[in-house]
């Protein structure tokens, strides 16, 4: 069996890179165009397929590296962790799910937040991590996003949030729903202080996350091809009993329907953010 056949046999994944467990973990197949890529080439291209432009999902660490000035990111609130306060049990307990996700990622929950600079401009930022329980929003995500926004209410630095989330975390019941209101309420205060907020919507941004802080940017930027929706495609198909058109609920569809300001290639993002934030921010003396 050739390598190509081996790849062809492998099930199509949903955007994370497929790795080959033979010589050195150096080959990756593009989810979109099936091109076999050198892992090294892909990484030097910010995990965008050099052939077709497909944007692979990336970790918060990669995002920080691609977006912010070198070594300027300082993490905040990393010690906050989730708790199984409902003692929720589905096919396994929430406690076990948390433990597994934590040991796999080395992170407490599905968002990394902190401060950094982009071309010298300081920002408060939060980056969601889809690899941690589908980027689901529970109390920790809600709290860290809210604290990020509240820091900006105090210090007037712009907020930049990168979303990648399947929506609310069901294992936290109604409390996860309330994080939508909590984060949106914080954005109301931010707007009152006239501090800019840019939301970068990455694949995927759906459910409760899309229907709260993700879509409320003064400027909404979508990465190419990202699934951005309130209701998931499967739920809609079940409701209306018909197949959805190709490209439905993808970034370009949202641009056409007026929901995002632009669809921006990841490799342009740093420059775009820098320009937007510099232009948007009210010139003022920093607080203190």
């Amino acid at each position: 069996m050739s390598i190509i056949d081996w790849f062809a046999k492998k099930e199509k994944s949903t955007g994370s890179s497929e790795r080959l467990n033979i010589p050195g973990d150096v080959w990756v197949k593009c989810t979109s165009c099936s091109e076999i890529l050198f892992q090294k080439d892909l990484e030097s291209n910010q995990k965008v397929c050099p052939k077709c432009g497909f944007h692979f999902r990336i970790s918060p660490e990669d995002r920080i590296r691609y977006t912010f000035d070198t070594n300027t990111f300082i993490e905040k609130d990393s010690e906050i962790g989730p708790t199984d306060f409902l003692r929720f049990f589905d096919t396994e307990s929430y406690t076990d799910r948390i433990r597994k996700a934590q040991s796999k990622s080395g992170k407490n929950d599905a968002v990394v937040s902190g401060t950094a600079t982009i071309n010298g401009l300081p920002v408060n930022t939060a980056i969601m991590n889809f690899a941690f329980m589908g980027g689901s929003m529970g109390s920790v995500v809600g709290e860290k996003i809210t604290r990020t926004i509240e820091r900006s209410v105090e210090d007037f630095k712009p907020v930049v949030v990168f979303t990648s989330s399947g929506g609310a975390r069901m294992q936290e019941g109604i409390m996860s729903l309330m994080q939508m209101a909590k984060t949106s309420a914080a954005l109301e205060r931010l707007a009152e202080q006239r501090v800019p907020y840019i939301s970068v919507l990455c694949d995927p941004t759906t459910g409760g996350t899309s229907a709260s802080f993700a879509i409320l940017g003064d400027i909404n930027i979508a990465e190419p091809g990202a699934l951005i929706s309130f209701a998931g495609p499967r739920v809609i198909e079940q409701t209306i009993r018909q197949k959805l058109p190709k490209g439905f609920q993808r970034s370009e569809f949202l641009l056409a329907h007026g929901m995002v300001d632009m669809v921006t290639d990841r490799r342009e993002l740093r420059h775009t953010l820098s320009t937007l934030l510099t232009t948007l921010s009210i010139p003022r003396e920093p607080n203190q």
Partner: peptide, 26 residues
Amino acid sequence: GAYPGIEAEERGQAEAIARNLREMAG
């Protein structure tokens, strides 16, 4: 729940809800 339909998505179901959450807070 909010209606999960094609037109609802086209007209910004997520935005409509999110905006209400923010504005109600104010």
